[in-house]
């Protein structure tokens, strides 16, 4: 049933534009990575974009050198800590509620206004990542809402074939969500053990099926021929601890080193993001 509280448009389903590639020359095969494997993309972080919220932040990850590849754009607002409603049961800790939502225009396909399972899933990952960082017992009986709008997803506009990329895009989005939420939490003045930041690393195969896979940080799915595995890590640098680990892919268990190096690179990416985060927060204090 259509949601009568929104304007739903025509009754017949509409089709996203289908592009004609027969008459136009074929697009170039997957672009190659424009950065060295150990370099993350530049990111821009700013706090205080929503003045009426307790804390807020905006993160933009630079568009890579190839045109048409959109960068990730995230906006996060934190409301709280505030008292829980009277009906809520007693909690000795702060109750976190995380909410991640793609804007309808954020991805290749138009997103609806209701959260889909992948957005809920992102919310849970984010909650796990932040819960480890927040000193939760300093706010009993209170709650905090962390809301992230993904204004623009990290998707290539040109490569239109679905290569199962959404999963990897989700990882990139999660990495950004963790970083931007940490900035907004700091902006809201909520005590954390450390600043947490997200980092993504992937095992990619660039030159055909038989080539030796390499580990790269901050991957853009469209820049690689095939992604074998990837992981997203939320990392606290001063404590050297991982609050959230999400690995996905297909790795032989006989070679645990491959997994370990993937995690190491993920941590490295997270450290890079953390540098930007700390720099941004330091700037705000000045």
């Amino acid at each position: 049933m259509a949601d009568r509280r929104r304007i739903n448009g025509p009754a017949g389903a509409t089709i996203p534009p289908v592009f004609d590639d027969v008459s136009t020359p074929k697009l170039k095969s997957p672009k190659t990575r424009s950065r060295p494997p150990n370099t993350t993309r530049k990111m821009y972080l700013k706090t205080g974009v929503t003045p009426s919220a307790s804390g807020s932040a905006y993160l933009e990850i630079e568009t890579s050198a190839t045109p048409g590849v959109s960068g990730l754009k995230l906006s996060c607002s934190v409301h709280g800590p505030r008292s829980l409603p009277r009906s809520a049961p007693f909690s000795p800790h702060i109750v976190l509620s995380t909410h991640v939502k793609y804007a309808p225009f954020a991805t290749k396909q138009r997103r609806g206004y209701l959260r889909d399972p992948s957005e809920r899933d992102l919310g849970i990952h984010l909650e796990a990542a932040l819960r480890g960082a927040i000193i939760a017992d300093r706010w009993p009986k209170s709650g905090v809402d962390i809301i992230i709008s993904i204004v623009e997803g990290d998707q290539d506009r040109e490569t239109s074939l679905l290569q199962g990329d959404e999963v990897w895009d989700m990882m990139n989005a999660l990495g950004g969500c963790i970083t931007v939420a940490a900035a907004a939490l700091a902006d809201a003045g909520i005590d954390c053990v450390d600043t947490v930041a997200g980092g993504v690393a992937a095992l990619v195969q660039d030159a055909g099926e038989d080539s030796i896979p390499t580990v790269v940080v901050d991957p853009i799915p469209s820049e690689h021929e095939k992604i074998l595995a990837a992981c997203c890590i939320a990392y606290l640098p001063t404590r050297d601890e991982v609050t959230n680990l999400w690995f996905r892919g297909d790795l032989p268990t006989s070679d645990i080193d491959l997994y370990t190096s993937l995690v190491e690179k993920g941590i490295q990416a997270s450290k890079n993001a953390n540098r930007v985060l700390v720099g941004c927060l330091a700037e705000t204090i000045e």
């Binding site: 959230n244 999400w246 690995f247 892919g249 297909d250 032989p252 070679d255 080193d257 997994y259």
Partner: peptide, 27 residues
């Protein structure tokens, strides 16, 4: 994927005969 893996696959535990693969990890 790598030479190391190929070697490892060759010496897969004959008893179990399985070739385990890691698919996903979540905290």
């Amino acid at each position: 994927t790598t030479d190391a893996e190929a070697a490892a696959a060759a010496e897969t535990d004959p008893e179990s005969g399985r070739n385990l693969r890691l698919l996903s990890i979540r905290t």
